[in-house]
Nucleic acid binder design. Sequence first.
RNA 1: GGCGGUAUCGUCUAGUGGUUAGGACGAGGGAUUCUCAGUCCUUAAACCGGGGUUCAAUUCCCCGUACCGCUACCA
Length: 483
Amino acid sequence: MSEKEVRVRIAPSPSGYLHVGTARTAIFNWLYARNKGGKFLVRIEDTDVSRSDAALVQPILDAMKWLGIDWDEEPVYQSKKIDSYGVYVNKLINSGNAYRCFCTPDELDERRKKAMAEKKPLQYNRACLHRSEDEIKQLLAENKPFAIRLKIPDGETTYNDKILGDITRQNSEIEDLIICRANGRAIYNLAVVVDDHEMGITDVIRGNDHISNTFKQIHIYQALSLTPPNFAHVPLILRPDKKKVSKRLGDKDVAEYGAEGILPEAMFNFLCLLGWSPKDDREFLPIEELKKIFVLENVNGSNPIFNEEKLIALNGEYIRSYPDHELAAMVAPELVRAGYTSKYWLETRWQYLMDIIGMLKERCKRMSDFVAMSEHFFHNEFEYDDKAVKKRFNHEAAERMKQLCDKFESIGNFKLENIEGALGDLAEELQIKKGELIHPVRLAVSGISFGPSLYHILEALGQQEVLARMKKAIEFINKMGDK
RNA sequence: GGCGGUAUCGUCUAGUGGUUAGGACGAGGGAUUCUCAGUCCUUAAACCGGGGUUCAAUUCCCCGUACCGCUACCA
């Protein structure tokens, strides 16, 4: 009955944008919280002032919103509570769990280099752990700067990872890590433990690359007499070249996918399927469904490769599943931006837009395809595709189109059946296949050789426009012949 | 180098001590059709290697190999 409310968090550091790895971790955390009726929080890890940039925070938050992720409390900024870590440091020193280290960064660096050259362990040699009281007093009196190190006890440490199972590490493999810089600022591992504790975090779901930190953090919890949360480490997303996704290697900002015509829900669905599975054959899983069925235990332990082709295929599936009016609302601003039409024009002909969307949507894989495929629906300044011209435009086609114009002109009601009827009649009279008429007309009215059913295009365009475009094409063909 | 993790079609994955090892993307073929898509049908494509345990191992154990990660007064 008295199960504790689940509280999870995503903790990005504002040193760049939100890439797919962090986004996917956020998704897992969010789904876990939503599934358990718990809280999802955001913490900005900006304790390293030199690497953090406050201007980078908002884009990260925006990218999460774009994905459909919301958070339940105001984001916590570590930089704003940087002074509050001191009491924990003092507690650790006073209890003998931490000690002052007077070694300078240069000394440490040198020792590390030497160890590396000699292929020896790179760990801190605990030089300062063994200093006498007097020695320490002396150094303090001399105002020598010092960092604080956690003293790792002997033995071994095991924790149960909710994805990977039991993981054990010899404590001798864990370094006496620095938890507080010489300038008094807390270091990541201390800040994480303190914040997770103060925020009441129950489950830490994060990237695989934090497993070694987990052991360090467990020792901080123990030294502080606190109970550690549950840990779950998700495998890292790899690039097609099998390197982990990173800003350094130029991997995309999640928001960039939006600019490239990926729907947020498709991105969410796809990212979720990278390393997680519902254990049945379903793949098209909208967010609402995922909230119901997500369980952490179904995350598998191996690193998936980010396969953009599959994302695009799934995106197409989402496009087809959305109602026309929703798609129209998303596409309209893009059409205006492309310069095809104006906001006003679209507003007064919303139904026309919806008809076009309806025609186009099953052949669009990205939202941007709507723009790319619809220019001719908004004006007639398009060019004819070269290859198609060579194949379809000739004097015979022009002659047939002329005859078809006559047929079209006499149609009283320019509707699908009548258009189809007129074209069919002419084909029969001329003893040719309908395609012989359809292909040149398609090119004449759209400039391209592919797209929706011709009858639908013609009906949408309207009688006048169709006739005008066909006549223009006939003229074009005649001029072609002159050369 | 040390430590940790992982290993099923090219990719994402399902699955089991005995299966025709399943699905999806991508690829090939076919049907529908005015094209392109879409839809439907269909073909090819995988259990990293070696030892055990067992009547039986892709599945359990060990070793090796490969890949990934960590190894900062970064997060």
